[in-house]
């Protein structure tokens, strides 16, 4: 499955490479557009030295780590939120006559390599923030772990958003509130948001495990909500649990499509 996905993606990348100028422009465009987020953070810190109890470098670290996970998930899998287009256009039928999972096909369909621009932007921000933080080597191992867990969590959110579209074929944009909303939420320290939001993204939709709980560990900070210390190591468990839920929801969506034809 992974191999098929990689080969499909490679074919689309080769196709995109036929138009190098467009590809370059769109890559730069993605870099600049997501750079706006960092411009906003810069304007905020031109007015204050701390936001929700965190300084500029710490916010950049939280932004960069979540942004990297979000952008990679976006690059690789966010096409699953096109599922309602495929349902309306009838192309989902064409996918169901192929011997490969529809999830792999939808995710790889019209793969857009220029989204790498956003990945690069987030990586640059993270690369600027990390050397200024002096993270002790004993805690730095968490950084790659949290990025991988973040990719799994965001991918699951996208898959859930896709699954919802089997029910809401006419209003697929509903999923944006959760996918892009999740991306926006994790850009800032969760301490800026209300307690009920933080509880919601800790215990229901576990976005807090993308960069907040593991980030607190990396930064050596106390949890403003007072959750126990071991919660910071739960990201892999949260990612696996959400991925499981998302897989079940997606399968239910496909089953529903095949049993109702709509």
């Amino acid at each position: 499955m992974v191999r098929t996905y990689a080969l499909l993606v490679w074919t689309w990348t080769r196709a995109a490479a036929q138009y190098p100028l467009s590809f370059a422009l769109m890559t730069v465009g993605g870099f600049v557009v997501s750079g706006l987020d960092i411009a906003v953070i810069w304007v905020i810190f031109a007015n204050t030295s701390s936001l929700g109890g965190f300084g500029l470098t710490e916010v950049m670290f939280l932004y960069g780590s979540a942004g990297l996970a979000f952008a990679i998930a976006d690059l690789l899998f966010s096409n699953v939120d096109r599922i309602s287009e495929h349902i309306r256009a009838g192309t989902l039928d064409a996918m169901l006559i192929r011997p490969v999972s529809p999830f792999v096909q939808v995710a790889a369909d019209r793969f857009m390599p220029h989204r790498i621009g956003r990945v690069a932007q987030a990586a640059v921000v993270l690369g600027i923030a990390l050397p200024r933080l002096d993270v002790p080597a004993g805690r730095a191992w968490m950084i790659p772990v949290m990025v991988v867990c973040g990719i799994v969590i965001f991918t699951s959110v996208w898959a859930l958003g896709g699954a919802v579209q089997f029910l809401l074929t006419d209003a697929p944009e509903v999923a944006n509130a959760f996918t892009y909303g999740g991306g926006m939420l994790t850009q800032y320290p969760l301490s800026v948001y209300g307690d009920h939001i933080v509880r919601g993204v800790t215990f229901i939709l576990p976005l807090a495990f993308v960069n907040w709980q593991p980030g607190l560990y990396v930064l050596g900070r106390d949890d403003p909500l007072g959750l126990p210390h071991w919660v910071r190591f739960l990201s892999p468990a949260a990612a696996v649990a959400l991925a499981l839920v998302a897989a079940l929801a997606w399968r239910a969506g496909i089953r529903r499509y095949r049993s109702t034809g709509s």
């Binding site: 098929t4 499909l8 196709a15 192309t91 064409a94 011997p99």
Partner: peptide, 22 residues
């Protein structure tokens, strides 16, 4: 409706099918 890929040259569509069917 076509099961081919609208934006790709025909040959690339065939290549995708080759990959899908291994």
């Amino acid at each position: 409706r076509t099961t081919l890929w609208w934006d790709l040259p025909l040959r690339d569509s065939f290549e995708l099918i080759r990959l899908l069917y291994k």
